[in-house]
Nucleic acid binder design. Structure first.
Length: 246
DNA sequence: GGACAAGTAAGAGTTTCCGA
DNA sequence: TCGGAAACTCTTACTTGTCC
């Protein structure tokens, strides 16, 4: 491991450590000699990284030290690029725009020689991307955050159009589609709505009341959100799963 | 017996020297 | 640049001795 990468790792260890870390422990994790750790920490302290050591205690990173954005490793840059690029496949145009903005911001703050996000060799195909939503997914995400009920006009598999009041709980992203999970007052049960079949959506000025956390907990406990994903390779719906995708 | 100070041991950081 | 070894320093916790 290069020295710069090792120094970066030391900062990461100290940032996430719940208790002081001894040089011996750091050396063990980095698979280097304790002497090397002392040298690296001295180098960090020389660059004003607030690493503090105490005999008999270990090393800590003083609160308030944040990693500047330039400290992304090439692999982290690639992870960010792929992750943000995959958003383009969700059919959620506002999320896609936010992702593009984020990539631009990260690119702008990377110092030279920059492992540029724009010049990465990883690409995400737009082929077979999920159809764009007919309604604003931004509004639906906002309704989930604020626990506000939605009034949906929804076209189901049989092409019949219904209007229903839904407590939106979550959005589940699959490669093939995006589902809105919610408690449907029309059916008095949990339902999963395909994003592309939602014809219209209004956020109502009615919140969930005190039921939001309970509904979400019940939904997580009784539904296997990855059932449809697994179904292709491992058929067999779990006993407890009462998922209904319409 | 309780409170306090001094002594001691253990753990860990720091430094130096040397060689690969 | 890194690792090994040794000596030193510092802090903490525990033990021991003394005094009231």
């Amino acid at each position: 491991m290069a020295r710069s990468a090792r120094m970066f790792e030391i900062i990461q260890m100290l940032r996430t450590a719940q208790a002081p870390l001894t040089a011996e422990e750091i050396a063990r994790r980095l698979e280097v000699n304790k002497r090397t750790v002392y040298r690296d920490i001295a180098a960090l302290q020389a660059t004003r990284v607030p690493v503090e050591g105490a005999a008999g205690i270990g090393y800590v990173l003083r609160n308030g030290f944040d990693l500047p954005p330039l400290m992304f490793t090439p692999e982290e840059i690639e992870a960010i690029t792929v992750g943000l690029s995959l958003i383009a496949r969700t059919g959620d145009r506002s999320l896609e725009a936010a992702g593009a903005n984020a990539i631009a911001k990260i690119d702008a703050v990377l110092p030279p020689p920059r492992p540029s996000v724009a010049q990465t060799h990883l690409f995400v195909s737009p082929w077979h991307a999920i159809p764009a939503a007919k309604v604003s997914m931004r509004l639906i995400r906002q309704a989930i955050r604020e626990e506000r009920k939605l009034k949906l006009r929804y076209r189901d598999q049989a092409d019949s159009l219904t209007e229903r009041i839904v407590c939106p709980l979550a959005i589940v992203y699959y490669i093939e589609g995006v589902l809105l999970a919610g408690f449907c007052e029309l059916r008095n049960g949990f339902r999963h709505f395909r994003q592309d079949r939602i014809e219209a959506c209004d956020v109502l000025d009615i919140d969930f009341g005190d039921t939001g956390a309970g509904l979400r907990k019940q939904w997580r406990e009784t539904h296997d959100i990855f059932y449809y994903e697994r179904q292709r390779g491992a058929p067999g719906k779990p006993e407890h799963d009462k998922s209904v995708m319409i």
